[in-house]
């Protein structure tokens, strides 16, 4: 058996495959056969401090090899998550990454601390694509705001902190550098790309929220570019995601420099996609006589 384990920000994961936040709800959805324990880690749908209802419908729209979503991050809030969900995730998952967001830097820090105090999380992922209420821009599109949120969280907690960045910037590697120098222990690249569609039947924007985020195979080359360029510029490890549909896609991200890989919308296409990616990577290593998958990380870059 090839060794699929990877070490990421000081923590060893048994394999590199994790769900992208907001795309796999093992506690709410009926069981389709994939167990939490099969995955490198379980990542929850981003929680805020307070409950959120989400956006008006239509919330999703199919596009060429992808989909737009404007779900609006509905959740029952932090207390409900900590009481009802986190203990069950902790019980079944090998590793637990808790995704959080806040409208202010203080809220980010408060929530990170609250999660750390449960003792049930291995890492915290900051969803920095949501808006800051004071500036109405997303945290990860403004270097000063980005630094503010990460610094506040790092002051509040000892757990490793992952900055999940938006690709809707001119130079994402620049934002990766800002995250690293602000103390982030790792990066998640990328969240969805901003986009929209018009429903020609009614001559109106297709999504209830007008604008949404594009995900799926349509964004894979863009996401891969983000990971590859970030890997060249920063030392902290990366969770790569954006359009992964197969083990071959996952391997591309690993070769580009990702240590862990996230699968998002393809779980909607095939609820067992993450399992297929894990077994595909394992078979690939066996056939290629690769003892440790981690030897492949960043191998697409010229040797230094």
């Amino acid at each position: 058996m090839p060794d699929l384990s990877v070490t990421f920000a000081g923590i060893t994961f048994k394999n590199p495959v994790v769900p992208a936040s907001g795309t796999w709800e093992p506690l709410d959805a009926p069981d389709t056969g994939l167990a939490m324990s099969e995955l490198g880690a379980v990542v929850n749908k981003t929680i805020f401090k307070e409950p959120r209802a989400g956006n008006p419908p239509p919330r999703i729209w199919e596009t060429a090899s992808g989909m737009l979503n404007a779900i609006g991050i509905p959740s029952a809030g932090a207390d409900d998550f900590i009481k009802k969900k986190l203990p069950k995730i902790r019980k079944h998952a090998d590793k637990v990454i808790v995704s959080i967001a806040g409208y202010t830097a203080d809220e980010f820090a408060w929530l990170a601390k609250k999660i750390e105090q449960t003792g049930m999380a291995d890492m915290i992922e900051l969803n920095l694509s949501c808006p800051n209420i004071e500036s109405h821009t997303s945290w990860s599109t403004d270097p000063a705001l980005l630094a503010q949120a990460i610094v506040a969280v790092k002051k509040a907690v000892k757990l490793p902190v992952i900055a999940k960045l938006s690709p809707n910037v001119t130079d994402i590697a620049e934002m990766c550098l800002v995250s690293e120098s602000s103390g982030a222990d790792a990066l998640t690249l990328v969240n969805t790309f901003r986009g929209m569609a018009i429903d020609i039947k009614v001559k109106k924007p297709a999504l209830g929220n007008i604008f949404g985020g594009l995900s799926g195979p349509a964004i894979k080359p863009l996401a891969l570019y983000a990971v590859y360029t970030a890997y060249e510029r920063v030392k902290i490890p990366i969770i790569g995601m954006g359009g992964i549909a197969s083990w071959q896609d996952a391997l591309e991200f690993i070769l580009a420099g990702a240590t862990l890989v996230g699968i998002g919308m393809y779980t909607f296409v095939n609820p067992l996609c993450m399992r297929h990616v894990i077994s595909g990577l394992s078979n690939y290593c066996s056939e290629q006589n690769i003892e440790k998958l981690s030897d492949c990380i960043g191998k697409a870059h010229p040797a230094t």
């Binding site: 795309t23 796999w24 709800e25 709410d28 959805a29 009926p30 389709t32 989400g54 008006p56 419908p57 239509p58 919330r59 999703i60 729209w61 989909m67 979503n69 779900i71 509905p74 919308m265 779980t267 909607f268 609820p271």
Partner: peptide, 17 residues
């Protein structure tokens, strides 16, 4: 009927008020 992404409960795409 509503637009569905996953049909299972992962995506929250099928929500109606």
């Amino acid at each position: 009927e509503s637009y569905m992404g996953c049909g299972v409960g992962h995506c929250h795409g099928c929500a109606v008020p």
